[in-house]
Nucleic acid binder design. Structure first.
Length: 872
DNA sequence: GTGCCGGACCCGACTTTGCCGCTC
DNA sequence: AGAGCGGCTTTGTCGGGTCCGGCA
């Protein structure tokens, strides 16, 4: 046989039972296999896989938690700036003319509302000018910045925390374990000082712990951009103006491609560049920890002023960005102020740092959309500075602590971009989550100005210009392109009747409100209990799908029968084409049934008139015994292995039979319970009996052979006596160890019907034994007499001392053990029972006979006064 | 520099009424 | 003998979301 062919066979054929023939293998030939990393594998490794599900979940969890933390931060700051002393101090520092200018705007002095609005705007502008130009000095650092997931991760790893992505890769089954690990690691090292935190964040954060810190900065007239806005808000409140503290939440985005530099052509090689690319590539591969070990990150903290570090997150970019980043006094802020103009009845946005009033679009930081009055956000070297401000959620905190989502006021491309970040149109749970978060901070009741504001925000959304990209139309709340319609969606009424809103690159644009979701007739019935109205034609035909084997066969049959025309199509209908399904009523106690002999009850509305659903297990049997007409209720389907299994929950029965059925059902339940209780009681008594008998045997053996042991040479101790039957029990002391009943140190479980089967002492046990009838089949020994102690030599019953007129032989013991074992096998059931278990005798028996499964529960159950019922 | 597009990958929705052997 | 119960099965297809690289 050719050895190569042989090997081929062996590799191809996995059948182990092949008969192998010995052949001569030519020795001169040897097979050499050289494995080389192929170019394709390199290519495959460089091709980045998408985020794993776990990693994506981790990112989303981080995003959510960070968002909530930042909302809490905004809430606390908003609370602190209500401090009366702080407001009083700020007011005392404000020039009187500025204060008076607000006091002058009153209905009595200026009856015209529009004029009052104008005056108010002018006054607030003067106040902002004074604040920004002569009162408060803004430091370039300390404000909140947006960080990517990778940035934070690198910072954490640099400080010795494990990678967020790393455990996710190792344990894909556990959802978001990395985050939990981070929490745990943070918990285990509670001494994260500010410096470490700043290192993690690569930032000189500004720590404000109390309103007093705010006051300090107010008196110093210096602080971060965020602080400036917070203090300005406090000042406005002190002036009696309804004022909101607006926060643009800068939570870490969950997307992987945010702020990630696109792969550059490999033209330049530089150390810094190499480190940077290495760092950025590591973050997703998950092996960053090892890299970090081999290339320890050198912190330059001691040489600060600024916390640049080699090997940190995009050092070249970050340092250049740090050096060339535009001053915070010219870029859109994260905190700003909204003041309510009573004259105009609307909120005016105020940026006290850039001195901008009533220019809502000046707060959107997105590079294309925003045109802030200042340099662009990119460095002069052409290196893109990472975007430090992203508009996703904008919350306005009012004086009473409640907040409102005002993102629509400030985002320029709300529909095209920001709404998608908030979760509209995708990631089903995301929008719900954000709405839930909002519901926590929203005022539980509405003010008139809230209604007006909502109208304004709706109008803003409607006025928003059409997107300028195709992706902008995707999931847009207002517009839709036909290319983005899902398979089960159409524009309805059909396009000639639904007017085009315009054209985008030749494609018609329709309103999102004209998009209608469709379902097949079966889906309408099964999901909502609706049926297609008679005569309705499907609005759309789609390829029929086969989720089950049966359906697949059906489709195949149709395909072959359909003259090879191809696909089998299925009609889809709109909700408006359906009506509620009205099942045939129950007449004379007869429940209508379907082809399968049961009744469809997917939604409660499908219950027939005159019928009632009794959703208990086993109720069908009772109904049958009572001779009542019933139908088993199919409430849903389980899908396993391409097979739909109906889930039956109880029965549907005529209303007039409900009481009879229920009564019989409860009666049957009660009887079954009592029966089960009785059976259980019998089993427990039987097992106690068996235990006691085992103890008796042990005692007897000890008494009988104690003296013999002393005389026997030790060498024979473990040798079986082959001359005598039953010699296998010579080493009985190894088998039968001193037995101690465990103590009752376990807590009593919730009360169940007491069984009171467990004797509290051996004496009581023996007494019970005496009263319990023991059959001859059970064991050959009779129970202990009640007045004797089982542990005394005298306790040996007479019948155990002799067997067939002689002293009991071990063989007899074996035979009795066998009988007992057979009996036990007969009695054996799989239930867990109360039974003293730790007897080595029993253990040994279990190991000897594999079929033996005498319930041996833990000691916790032995002396428990009450025994748990198995089924609840 | 930005956006589009296609490919790759992953995930979730969709599907909607068995068979057979053992035990009681 | 027959009802009832439980184990076995093996996991498909398609569309959509996301990410990435290449290209205009």
């Amino acid at each position: 046989m050719d050895p190569i062919n042989n090997s081929t066979l062996s590799s191809d054929d996995s059948d182990d039972e092949l008969d192998w023939e010995e052949v001569e293998v030519p020795r001169a030939e040897h097979l050499e296999i050289t494995l080389q990393p192929k170019a394709t594998s390199t290519k495959a490794s460089t091709k980045r896989k998408g985020l794993s599900h776990t990693e994506r979940l981790t990112r989303i969890h981080c995003h959510k938690i960070h968002t909530i933390c930042l909302i809490a931060n905004g809430w606390i700051r908003n609370h602190w700036i209500n401090d009366e002393l702080l407001q009083a101090r700020l007011l005392s520092l404000t020039p009187l003319p500025l204060q008076n200018s607000f006091a002058m705007i009153h209905k009595s002095r200026v009856p015209d509302a529009a004029r009052r609005g104008y005056l108010f705007e002018a006054s607030i502008t003067r106040l902002a000018e004074w604040w920004s130009e002569s009162f408060f000095e803004v430091t370039p650092e300390g404000h909140l910045r947006n960080r990517t997931f990778e940035d934070v991760q690198l910072g954490l790893e640099a400080q010795g925390f494990r990678s967020l992505a790393e455990p996710a890769a190792k344990k894909p089954a556990a959802p978001a374990p990395a985050f939990l690990e981070l929490i745990q690691s943070l918990h285990q090292s509670p001494t994260i000082d500010n410096e470490t935190l700043q290192d993690i964040l690569d930032d000189d954060g500004e720590f404000i712990r109390t309103p007093k810190s705010l006051m300090k900065h107010a008196l110093m007239r210096k602080g971060s951009r965020d602080l400036s806005a917070q203090l300005f808000t406090a000042l406005c409140r002190s002036l009696g103006i309804p004022t909101r503290l607006v926060v643009s939440i800068q939570s870490v985005p969950w997307q992987a491609n945010i702020n990630k530099p696109k792969a550059k052509p490999r033209t330049k090689k530089g150390k810094g560049k190499a480190i940077e690319s290495q760092a950025s590539s590591q973050s997703l591969n998950g092996d960053l920890k090892e890299q970090a070990k081999s290339n320890p990150i050198i912190k330059l903290r001691k040489q600060k002023p600024k916390g640049n570090r080699l090997g940190g997150p995009s050092p070249a970019a970050s340092s250049s960005a740090r050096n060339h980043i535009p001053s915070p006094s010219v870029t859109p802020p994260v905190f700003w102020t909204e003041v309510f103009s009573r004259g105009d009845g609307r909120w005016l946005a105020v940026d006290p740092v850039r001195c901008i009033v009533n220019k809502r679009k000046a707060f959107d930081p997105s590079p294309g959309a925003s045109a802030p009055p200042g340099p662009s956000s990119f460095g002069s070297l052409g290196t893109p500075a990472p975007q430090k401000n992203r508009m996703a959620y904008v919350l306005a905190f009012e004086e009473d602590g409640y907040a409102r989502d005002v993102t629509r006021r400030y985002a320029r491309e709300y529909g095209a971009k920001v709404s998608k970040v908030q979760g509209q149109g995708r990631g089903k749970g995301r929008l719900e989550w954000w709405n839930r978060v909002l519901s926590i901070v929203h005022r539980p009741y509405r003010l008139h100005r809230d209604d007006i504001e909502d109208e304004e925000l709706d109008a803003n959304e409607m006025k928003e210009a059409m997107p300028t990209t195709i992706s902008g139309f995707k999931d847009h709340p207002l517009y839709v392109l036909t290319r983005h319609l899902h398979q089960n969606q159409i524009i309805y009424p059909e396009p000639p009747d639904t007017p085009e809103l315009g054209k985008f690159r030749g494609e018609p644009v329709y309103p999102r409100s004209a998009v209608v979701d469709l379902k097949s007739s079966e889906n309408w019935l099964r999901s909502e209990g609706r049926v297609v109205k008679a005569g309705c034609q499907p609005l759309k035909m789609v390829k029929a799908r086969s989720g089950t084997v049966n359906k697949l066969r059906e489709i195949e049959t149709l395909k072959t029968a359909g003259a090879g025309n191809g696909e089998v199509m299925q009609g889809l209908y709109a909700r408006g084409q359906t009506e509620m399904y009205v099942p045939p009523p129950v007449i004379d106690g007869i429940v209508p049934k379907n082809n399968f002999g049961n009744i469809d009850l997917y939604v409660p509305s499908m219950l027939p008139r005159g019928g009632v659903h009794v959703p208990f297990k086993g109720v069908a049997k009772i109904a049958r015994q009572l001779g009542l007409d019933y139908a088993e209720a199919v409430t849903r389907f389980d899908f396993k292995n391409r097979r739909a299994l109906p889930v039956i929950e109880g029965v549907v029965i005529a209303v007039e039979n409900e009481d009879v059925l229920l009564e019989a059902y409860w009666e049957a339940e009660k009887e079954a319970e009592e029966k089960a209780h009785k059976q259980r009681e019998e089993r427990v008594v039987k097992r106690w009996k068996r235990l006691i008998q085992a103890l008796q045997i042990r005692q007897r053996l000890q008494n009988q052979y104690q003296n013999t042991h002393d005389e026997m040479p030790p060498a024979d101790h473990h040798q079986p006596d082959t001359d005598q039957a039953g010699g296998f029990l010579v080493g009985a002391d190894d088998v039968v160890q001193p037995f101690h009943l465990p103590r009752n140190f376990h807590p009593v479980l919730p009360s169940y019907p007491p069984l009171n089967l467990v004797p509290k002492s051996m004496k009581e046990l023996a007494a019970r034994m005496d009263t319990t009838s023991v059959t001859a089949d059970d064991v050959s020994e009779s129970p202990l007499p009640p007045e004797t102690e089982a542990t005394t030599d005298q306790a040996m019953p007479k019948s155990t001392r002799t067997h067939n007129g002689k002293a009991l032989k071990l063989g007899a013991t074996r035979s009795s053990a066998r009988v007992s074992r057979q009996k036990r096998k007969k009695d054996n059931d799989s239930e867990d029972e109360s039974m003293a278990s730790d007897s080595p005798l029993l253990k040994k028996r279990r190991t000897k006979g594999s079929d033996e499964s005498m319930p041996v529960p833990s000691s916790s159950r032995v002396l428990r006064p009450r025994l748990p019922r198995r089924e609840a």
